[in-house]
Design a protein around this nucleic acid. Structure first.
Lengths: 202, 202
DNA sequence: GTCTATACGCGGATAGAC
DNA sequence: GTCTATCCGCGTATAGAC
């Protein structure tokens, strides 16, 4: 929102302090969650002082909200790039599931649902809910296309399949992080794809 | 491990202090995670003083380990009660998925994978990993039975399907907590069941 | 076994100078 | 806009008395 909105990822020197604070917060929220992230840690990561942080934001919740909103926006944009691409319904869902991911880091949005202070706050939870809700709807639309085109063999509920797809991804992260290896994520995804392709006319 | 191991759930007056501390820790870890749980909060919930806690345990990680181990054991026992029951392979998997759950509280074991201090510690992560690993193996065995009996139509990988089942459950919690309602969990589970039953000979 | 005292830095800010 | 000072309770123990 300030001059020179250079989209530099790192908390380098070219971005404004407010910008660096938001980016640092995004990173820390992803890594350690809301409860595990302190203002001091944010300031250090951003290379900003207390005064700076409290000048731009009213406090930790305010800054976290800005960070969560941006992360949510990015997630939607990234998913749309895959889901809005070319190909059959199955192909797009497969592309979404097989997309490159930083599996061991988990989902920067989904992980927030395990944060007690986030779930309890309607403001902080809202962007999380909206994002997952949007994703389910977007996938449901694609499944419905597949159903309408006769690509998928019914009876199948588009809403249900869409939720299963999102849940498998979110749960895949849990399995991967538990074992310390991305393999479990891939295994879960392949299982879902096997089940889904069995109902697909190729 | 002390006299009178009364299995009273609440941190009532009959259990030993060490027992109450473990139970209180289990509850808090479930509710707020490891990072969000302080020794002081545990002591208050357990009705025990500092001295008592540090007499029985060397510190927060030690107490958390005892709590996590017990929760992991209980989860396995509970799952086994359903999975070891009677019925076809599909019926047992369905029973596991439709089992009554405190959906909005999430999985007391899976949620720990989002705790930065837990994932980083091999000791604390081990029981989490073992539990999820056991669960996947147990389900894979059942799927394999179904495959061998011709109940499920192959080709299907038992390991993959098992991972998808566990991932859907874990991800279902994420969806439910994001929306603040258990409905999303149920929707995801129904989607998986629909996909699975389509490959089942009834 | 449990209690009380003490410690020291962090969490999460507010106030006012520059 | 940013810096430094100051605040107060919490997080996470340790020490020693009872």
């Amino acid at each position: 929102m300030t001059t020179r909105t250079s989209t530099s990822a790192a908390a380098g020197t070219t971005a404004s302090a407010s910008e660096r604070l938001v980016e640092a917060t995004r990173e820390l929220l992803w890594e350690r969650g809301y409860v595990g992230t302190s203002p001091k840690a944010i300031q250090q990561a951003a290379g900003a002082g207390q005064g700076s942080m409290y000048h731009h934001f009213t406090g930790k919740p305010d800054l976290a909200l800005a960070a969560i909103r941006r992360t949510a926006d990015e997630l939607r944009a990234g998913a749309e790039r895959v889901l809005g691409g070319p190909g059959s319904a199955y192909a797009r869902i497969e592309a979404y599931l097989l997309r490159e991911r930083d599996v061991l880091r988990g989902c920067p949005v989904g992980r927030l649902t395990m944060d007690p202070d986030v779930v309890v706050s309607d403001e902080l939870r809202a962007p999380v809910d909206e994002t997952l809700h949007w994703l389910r709807g977007r996938l449901a639309g694609i499944v419905q296309e597949g159903l309408d085109d006769g690509e998928f063999e019914g009876p199948l509920s588009a809403e249900e399949i869409a939720s299963t797809v999102v849940a498998t991804v979110q749960g895949g992260y849990v399995l991967a992080r538990a074992s310390g290896s991305p393999a479990a994520f891939d295994t879960a995804v392949r299982g879902l794809l096997a089940l889904l392709s069995a109902r697909t006319r190729h």
